[in-house]
Design a protein around this nucleic acid. Sequence first.
DNA 1: TAGATTGTTAATCGATTAACAATC
DNA 2: TAGATTGTTAATCGATTAACAATC
Lengths: 206, 206
Amino acid sequence: MARLRKLMLERLMRYYQFLAELTAGNPVSNVTSAQIAEVLDVDPTQVRKDFRSIGLMGMGRVGFDTCEVCRTIRIVLGFDLDYEAVLVGTGHLGTAMLAYSGFARYGLRIVAAFDSDQDKVGEEIAGYSIKSTMLMKSYVETSGIRLAVLTTPPGASQELTDRLVSAGVTAIWNFSPTRLTVPAGVFVRHEHISVGLSEISHHLKP
Amino acid sequence: MARLRKLMLERLMRYYQFLAELTAGNPVSNVTSAQIAEVLDVDPTQVRKDFRSIGLMGMGRVGFDTCEVCRTIRIVLGFDLDYEAVLVGTGHLGTAMLAYSGFARYGLRIVAAFDSDQDKVGEEIAGYSIKSTMLMKSYVETSGIRLAVLTTPPGASQELTDRLVSAGVTAIWNFSPTRLTVPAGVFVRHEHISVGLSEISHHLKP
DNA sequence: TAGATTGTTAATCGATTAACAATC
DNA sequence: TAGATTGTTAATCGATTAACAATC
């Protein structure tokens, strides 16, 4: 599968969410590119092109088979697979993420939570017994985990990242407000709320 | 100031963050477009164009005045102004946001926290005494708040949004996993983690 | 001065939109 | 069949990159 562009991944995700909403109450067998385009404020041609590029075929006068679209997007985005992840940093945000049950439907499963604060070790949050980051490396190595969710304070992020990478992690979902340096081959997705903030701030400006 | 494109806002934010990092330890008086471009993985011409478009002038052989760049970006993005916001929904995520001290440097100040759960009302979180959402409308109206941070469970989001909008809110920072319908003129920034998730998921796919 | 860096114009690239014959 | 909707090609639009004279 060629090089799916970032923008398209985002659109696929939006299509998927919309279809999930659409079929939530009553099952809907078909959906047209125009319907999707209208709600998501994109061009109908765009929708058809995106669908075509992941192998979906529509039917003249009918549109697309809703289930088939959902199923295909799930496969392309990898939601049908099960990804195990460790979470590092059990502050407020880390706690929020441990308690959030919505990841499961995207195939993400947090299997362990770590913290450097020895006072927190052993505590229980949302069913997770917090482990010491001293045990992190061996845990990741043994269980072959490749994904880490980073919800640590800025100061600690880089060092923990280094340890995670050396233990075999190849993808980091970074929620700490810090730029991370990683070796080639390791993927970092940095969620900086500041991007949203800049839009809002700019919008509110008199 | 014309119509700054979303992409550029994002880049301005990244420039700003980088410069903040750069000058954190030791003050650096000048910075070149090439330096910024290298670290942020964009084209140097892009940097110069962006700077030019917000009125920044560089100097041949020297580059740009670091302080001036920071100051100008702050003004363009509106960080120098003070925005008051209410937070609605004091679950784990809401709590994390109330406790987060990083918003202040972007000019955002959360002045009150609301929850619909009467058992929570009166509780204290990070110095905020939780108020009932029944008092929300009058509070927003009286204090002239225009921004709301929404960290509510999916089911409640739309109704609370309607109430916020009717009270005069014109911008909503939506962290609930729900699409919101708002009248024209109201700005919604929807932070769907699912976008990041789709990238990570796609990346980890075998 | 010589050389690095800017500002700006032109060229390229890619993404979005329009048009329309083919299809169910 | 008639009409709505697709798939695909062509046209447009905008963003990124390259080139280079002007500048400090």
